[in-house]
Simulated scan of single mutants.
Amino acid sequence: MRYSSLTDFLSKGAVALAKGPVALIFIEDAVEVDTTIRHHQQAGFTEVLVFVHDQIEIPQPLEDTVHRITCQTHADGAVTDAVNAIINAAPGLWLYYCFNTEYLFYPFCETRSIAEMLAFHTEERRDAMLTYVVDLYAPDLWETPNAVSLESALMDRSGYYALARNDARGNPKERQLNFYGGLRWRFEEHIPQARRKIDRIGLFRAKKGLTLLPNHVFNDEEYNTYACPWHNNITAAICSFRTAKALKSNAGSMFEIETFQWHNSTPFEWTSQQLLDLGLMEPGQWF
């Protein structure tokens, strides 16, 4: 189903928000649009909303299985505005958002659905889930100049770290950290400081008054925590070519970077177990 705008969708297609979890995918270019959509459909999302410019095509019959919403995804505030409009329209619904060339992984995702995981997370009285954005990149940037290669994707096996997240008075916030690593850390001279974090609250339950802020956190501080006060909770990973793609398309960095490979590069196996073994997500009490 096609909608001319988000307003049009909320007027005619709001039935898609009757049951979750719902995935919101923001399409920034034509790279791996189909695989991004299929990956999240296979994870078990009840509906997939695709925000995309009119000039980008979604292959048929795949387009018939999603809600296509015309959106200028590169416009300032477009993503946060769209997410917040969906939050306002669907209180109580579990939502997820990402961009094309990003792929959600969570513990045991090969055998368990996203709905199963979120049902357990809800039982633990958690309304949001921390997701680490793990950079993927092609091994040969001459062969794949856009840095995207699903068949031979690499990732960093180390180099991840966390720093305290302070409040306005400079005091550490409870159960909140800023996480860093991957290409945003190794090539930080090309990344604005405000965009160097790799944490995102990618999965969350909508409620009245909840607002997504531009730095991938929410106005409700509890939503921004990595765990409850009593024990570790589930976390997930969004494996993403987005940073690599940006570094190889931006004029200030594209000619400065000949390869993303280094001694800690390792092939990405497209499994949750690899991410668990590397400490890039946490099963919590879910076994």
Rank of each mutant, 00 (worst) to 15 (best):
F51Q: 07
Q55L: 10
G44D: 07
I69K: 07
G44M: 06
D34K: 13
I37D: 04
D29P: 14
Q60W: 03
L49S: 01
Q55M: 03
H53V: 09
T65F: 01
E32L: 14
E28R: 15
L62E: 01
I27Q: 04
D54T: 09
E57R: 10
L62G: 00
E47C: 02
G44I: 13
P59V: 04
T36P: 05
A43W: 10
Q55R: 07
I56E: 14
R38S: 05
A30W: 13
L62C: 03
E28K: 15
A30K: 15
A30Y: 15
Q42R: 14
Q41S: 05
D29H: 14
D54Q: 15
V50T: 06
H53D: 07
T35A: 09
P59H: 10
Q41I: 00
H39Y: 01
V48H: 00
A30Q: 15
E57G: 08
V31E: 09
I27K: 08
T65A: 05
A43D: 08
I25Y: 10
F45I: 00
D64F: 02
V50K: 07
E47F: 00
Q60H: 10
R38C: 12
I37C: 04
V31I: 12
D54S: 10
E32N: 02
A43I: 10
V33S: 05
P61V: 10
I69S: 08
V66A: 06
T35K: 10
E32P: 13
V50I: 03
V52F: 09
Q41G: 07
V52Q: 15
Q42C: 11
V31T: 14
E32F: 14
I56W: 10
L49G: 01
D64A: 04
D29C: 11
T35E: 07
V50H: 01
V48Q: 02
R38L: 08
F26S: 09
T36I: 05
I58G: 07
P59A: 08
F51P: 04
D54R: 08
V66S: 03
H67V: 04
T35Y: 13
I56K: 06
E32T: 11
I58Y: 00
T46H: 00
E32Q: 15
D64P: 04
E32S: 14
F26L: 14
D54Y: 06
E28L: 13
Q55V: 07
T65Y: 00
F51C: 03
R38F: 11
V66Y: 02
I37L: 02
I27R: 05
I27E: 13
D34S: 12
D29W: 13
E57T: 09
E47D: 03
V66Q: 05
P61Q: 05
V33F: 06
F26M: 12
E28P: 12
T35V: 07
T65N: 02
R38P: 01
Q41V: 02
H39T: 06
L62H: 05
A43Y: 03
V66K: 05
D64L: 05
D29A: 14
R68A: 06
A30F: 11
Q55Y: 10
Q55W: 11
T36F: 03
F26V: 14
E28I: 10
V33N: 11
I37S: 01
I56L: 12
E47T: 00
E28Q: 15
A30E: 15
V31Q: 12
F51A: 07
Q55T: 15
I25K: 09
R68P: 07
I27F: 12
F45G: 01
R38I: 13
H40G: 06
A30G: 14
V31P: 14
I56N: 15
I58V: 03
F26C: 14
D54A: 12
V48T: 00
I69M: 05
Q60C: 12
